[in-house]
Design a protein around this nucleic acid. Structure first.
Length: 855
RNA sequence: GGGCGAUUAGCUCAGUUGGUUAGAGCACCUGCCUUACAAGCAGGGGGUCGGGAGUUCGAGUCUCUCAUCGCCCACCA
């Protein structure tokens, strides 16, 4: 028997271990069809936030649902080493211990990092457990595992041998804090207050000058030309001449290049090939020298002359003073412009010439675009609109910089000896080879996640059975740097899409609609919510409060109202169990049904049908409200109340059957409480999570008119009673409802608090000092009689308003039904409904008119 | 510059291929401690679905347009 009070802390204790220890989370039943999800691996940099809770709960709902539907459901857990993010955190920790991470031995540092990883992995597993996620831990993976590392090497070497990975000097985004290259996707552009510094570049041999505007004057030490547009009449005559580089006093050429936009600024642009991607291209076209002027920590190098050693921003201030002294600074124009910042360290990135490894993208991305045109093999996005992000990114993508000057990650499988280079899965033989010290971008290994976790490139049973995976669940914010990469690597290396479907969700926001962030301090720890309201409440809230692909505003009140719903379910279950205490299970039968049983079973059946459809479409909000509505408004409000009057063994059987079905449909959303109640039911298997999901059954569609009529009468009666503030109403019925009332007497007396004196036939009613209100029902008429004590004016006002509404509605409907176009074109069922409704409304109107007259 | 989303009750949000008088939760009003549940029960009020035009017998839903808010991508010497 259940405790008197629902206590989420008690209910959620120990159940996770029970499931896990019994192996219910593990996949591998070969007699079933496989269904696979691989978890988007969380970074081992910290705790899970509400976004993770949402993302993983969606997956758990899908996997629990599919498991109950008879699939061999594999949900593969794992974590991501998260290169730069983790390295930054580990460094921070080491610094706080007084150590200097960059001066440590690489192996020592890695030992620290691994122990950090173990700590955080354990924290994350505990949080997964709190959330109730049915992950198959026997197959857990980590991106730096041996197997996954082999996959990474295999992919690198293969792409290298095919010419799709190359090493080259390019302008990359340089993070001077982490001192590593970044990919374009790791750079976040933010609007900052800056300035255009307008400088004089004296034209050689004249007193005249070109006005050049720059936002980064410190790069002028690397200028090797100034460019003007070849069509720009203002400067045509100067092309081929030289200017004197300020402060450096070096002569550099004036060149003509399309890059210079005559309509922007002065139309003259300084060319710094080693510090700007556009200038790099210009430099290539004109064969210009590339002069690097900064060190890796963004201090100036020897090319900056007297400014050598200064930080770039200090140097800027210093040289501006000097330029001013030499009258070479025309003006400083304050502007707001967007500047790239490192996603991880948040410092301004420097475009920087550097030798890095790149993935050549055109061939790989074209394969994705081609595949998306094939409806049988494409990756399907839910909602569909997100496919555009994939396509858009694939249509316009630059080569991918994959080398990182970090220690935490997959070491690049390339070795150098003098000018020789060797790339291979295994180290080269012979002496003198030195391995590339860089590691690969984290996303390089994440891109392989759906198949590397299943044992690829080895031929494994796991891979053969579970790949391609069924669905990937992730937020729209990482479609373009993760989902895209998994798709192109999946197609390239397995020949198949890595997942059939991608279910996209939005971001969790705070109750004011702001993004949750550390700086705002508005983050909410899911573990705190679980403590207060339970994982079941949190899960149901997260997965039913928004439509697919939309953002979610976190609202504690809604979590609380979910708790109330669970409490309602809990109490309804207690009612069912109380009535089963003396029930002999041998008498269980749902064959010889009473009217009310047919009604609830029919509605249950419809609910199952709708819920199944919504679950299959990933419309969890719709599925959730369908179950909520059935549970509260059908089962609790009506069937349980009716059962109090008509309790017998069939009723008890139907109570068991219906509650069991509700529990099963709710289980994916709220695993803990449904398990608790289920285990306390007289008929159950070892666990609800391995029971069968309810199935829609055609045989359960009964004629439920009687119960619907009953409910209609009860509602109408209560309405009139309350609206008119009637203390002691009498329900009067005519001969035509004799049979119906006689069949329902017990129910009406109980639910309407009537008795033999107040539920009477019209001919036996005699009293003059009484008011009669007629009740028009869809199946007949009754009257309510009561002592006259109402406020006439109020009553009249109410009746007139009702009359007006009815007249409007009748008019509208008559007009509609007299429209031949409507009658001939609209479906017959719709038209019939209107006709019926019109008849009822007319009857009601005449009643109202009668009442108004009688007042 | 390109793309996407949002705009529905006081608040937060649903609304399936167009089809009765547009729904839920919270909040609000009235009456109830009825033996599963007062974290509850019964009843109720509240919306010209951002503006305008169009298609249609019929539009919250489809088309066009305008407005406001938000997001993504690109550019930014």
């Amino acid at each position: 028997m259940l405790n008197k009070k629902y206590n989420h802390l008690e209910v959620e204790e120990n159940k996770y271990d029970f499931w896990k220890d019994n192996g219910y989370f593990e996949s591998g039943d070969k007699s079933k069809e496989p269904f696979t999800i691989v978890i988007p691996p969380p970074n081992v940099t910290g705790k899970l936030h509400l976004g993770h809770a949402w993302d993983t709960t969606l997956q758990d709902i899908i996997i629990r649902y599919k498991r109950m539907c008879g699939y061999d459901a594999l949900w593969l857990p794992g974590m991501d080493h998260a290169g730069i993010a983790t390295q930054a955190k580990v460094d921070e920790k080491l610094k706080s211990l007084g150590l200097k991470p960059r001066e440590m031995d690489r192996e020592d540092w890695l030992n620290h990092a691994w122990s950090w990883k173990e700590d955080y992995a354990e924290t994350i597993r505990k949080q997964w457990a709190k959330l109730g996620l049915s992950l198959d831990y026997s197959k857990e993976r980590f991106t730096l595992d041996e197997g996954l590392s082999n996959a990474v090497k295999h992919v690198f070497v293969t792409l290298y041998n095919e010419g799709l990975i190359y090493r080259g000097e390019r302008i990359i985004n340089w993070d001077p804090e982490a001192m590593t290259a970044l990919s374009n996707e790791e750079v976040i552009y933010k609007d900052v207050e800056g300035a255009f510094y307008h400088l004089k570049y004296i034209i050689d041999g004249t007193n005249d000058y070109l006005e050049v505007a720059t936002t980064r004057p410190e790069t002028l030490f690397g200028d090797t030309a100034v460019a003007v547009n070849p069509e720009d009449e203002r400067y045509k005559h100067l092309i081929g001449k030289k200017v004197v580089l300020p402060l450096v006093n070096k002569k550099i050429p004036i060149i003509a290049d399309e890059h210079a936009d005559p309509s922007f600024g002065t139309g003259v642009v300084k060319i710094t090939p080693a510090h700007d991607p556009n200038d790099f291209e210009v430099g290539n076209r004109h064969n210009l020298e590339r002069i690097i002027v900064m060190n890796k920590d963004a201090t100036m190098n020897h090319n900056a002359g007297i400014y050598e050693g200064l930080d770039r921003f200090v140097c800027r201030e210093k040289m501006l003073e000097d330029l001013k002294k030499q009258d070479l600074l025309i003006k400083i124009e304050k502007i707001t412009h967007s500047v790239g910042h490192s996603e991880r360290t948040n410092v301004m990135v420097e475009p920087y010439l550097s030798k890095q490894w790149f993935v050549k993208m055109d061939e790989l991305s074209k394969a994705v675009l081609d595949n998306q045109k094939n409806k049988d093999t494409k990756v399907n996005f839910i909602p569909e609109r997100f496919e555009k992000i994939l396509n858009h990114w694939m249509e316009d993508c630059h080569d991918w910089c994959i080398s990182r000057q970090l220690w935490w990650g997959h070491r690049i499988p390339a070795w150098y000896k003098g000018d020789e280079i060797y790339v291979g899965v295994n180290p080269p033989t012979g002496d003198g080879w030195v391995q590339d010290s860089d590691v690969l971008d984290t996303w390089f290994s994440s891109a392989l996640w759906p198949f590397s976790t299943l044992g690829w490139p080895e031929k494994t049973e796991l891979f053969d059975r579970y790949y391609p995976t069924s669905v990937l669940v992730t937020g729209y914010d990482i479609i373009f740097f993760w989902v895209c990469r998994m798709v192109f690597q999946g197609l390239k290396f397995t020949g198949k899409r890595p997942f059939k479907n991608v279910l996209i969700h939005g971001l969790v926001r705070d109750n004011q609609g702001r993004k949750m962030s550390k700086s705002l301090g508005n983050g909410i720890d899911p573990m705190d919510v679980i403590e207060e309201y339970g994982a079941d409440s949190l899960r149901y809230f997260l997965t039913t409060s928004s439509a697919p692909g939309m953002d979610l505003r976190f609202d504690m009140e809604k979590v609380k109202s979910t708790w109330n719903f669970i409490n309602k379910l809990w109490n309804a279950s207690r009612y069912v169990m109380m009535n089963l205490e003396d029930f002999d299970l041998n008498n269980y039968s749902i064959v010889d049904l009473k009217e009310i049983d047919k009604w609830i079973l029919t509605n249950l059946n419809i609910t199952i049908k709708n819920v199944t459809k919504h679950m299959d479409n990933y419309d969890f909000n719709l599925a959730g409200s369908e179950i909520y509505n059935f549970t509260w408004n059908y089962f609790c409000d009506w069937y349980i109340e009716l059962s109090k009057v008509r309790m017998n063994d069939t009723t008890k059987s139907v109570l068991i059957y219906t509650l069991n079905s509700i529990l099963k449909m709710l289980h994916p959303f709220m695993p803990y409480v449904t398990e608790e109640i289920y285990q306390n039911m007289p008929m159950h298997e070892d666990s609800i999570m391995i029971s069968n999901y309810p199935i829609y059954n055609d045989d359960f569609e009964y004629d439920v008119t009687y119960t619907e009529n009953l409910i209609e009468m009860i509602k109408a009666f209560r309405n009139v009673k309350t609206e008119n503030n009637i203390k002691n109403p009498i329900l009067i019925y005519n001969e035509d409802l004799n049979e119906f009332i006689n069949d329902s007497k017990d129910i009406l007396e109980k639910l309407l608090k009537l008795n033999g004196e107040t539920l009477i036939k019209s001919q036996s009613f005699k009293d003059d000092d009484i008011t009669i209100i007629p009740l028009t029902l869809s199946f007949g008429n009754v009257e309510i009689a009561f002592k006259k004590d109402v406020n006439k004016d109020e009553e009249l006002e109410k009746l007139n308003k009702e009359k007006e509404n009815l007249e409007k509605s009748i008019q509208k409907r008559e007009k509609l039904l007299s429209n031949e176009n409507y009658v001939s074109k609209a479906p017959k069922t719709v038209v019939d409904k209107d006709r019926n409704q019109l008849e009822i409304e007319k009857l009601k109107l005449s009643d109202i008119i009668k009442q108004i007259k009688s007042l």
